[in-house]
Write a protein that binds this DNA or RNA. Structure first.
Length: 115
DNA sequence: TGGTTGACGGTGG
DNA sequence: TCCACCGCCAACC
């Protein structure tokens, strides 16, 4: 079986906690997993993990690009849109508003009421 | 043991 | 806004 490293296990754990309708960047996941700067390593893990219980479609690049998903970008996009997220082309809009920082979203300040 | 890989990130041009 | 560079990290081979 695949001996998961501590890091890999933590990464998967973090991704599993991303709520529906929210996303996290590879860098966010790395940081939440305790390895700041290991965004690339997280990408590798996502690439290899085919676990249905891990919502890897909610992990995107910092610039908002959906990227990868094993060539199934269309699917990744569909899943996100189905969760209520807005996407233009291959890029997620409003990243700042739906970004999962490990905690809940910001206390809905001023700029979140309007659109 | 050591080099290569890649679903990344930030800076600049 | 888009693209090229360079830096980072853990898994692979």
């Amino acid at each position: 079986m695949h001996q998961m490293t501590e890091f890999e296990r933590r990464v998967l754990s973090v991704v599993r906690r991303i709520p529906v309708g929210r996303v996290a960047t590879y860098g966010d996941v790395a940081a939440l997993a305790g390895r700041r700067g290991a965004a690339r390593a997280v990408g590798n893990i996502m690439r290899r993990c085919g676990r249905p219980d891990v919502p890897c479609h909610r992990v995107i690049a910092a610039g908002g690009l959906l990227g990868g998903y094993g060539g199934h970008e269309g699917l990744k996009r569909s899943l996100l849109v189905a969760e209520g997220l807005r996407v233009r082309g291959n890029r997620l809009l409003d990243l700042a508003r739906v970004r999962f920082a490990g905690r809940r979203p910001p206390p809905a300040g001023r700029t979140s009421s309007e659109r």
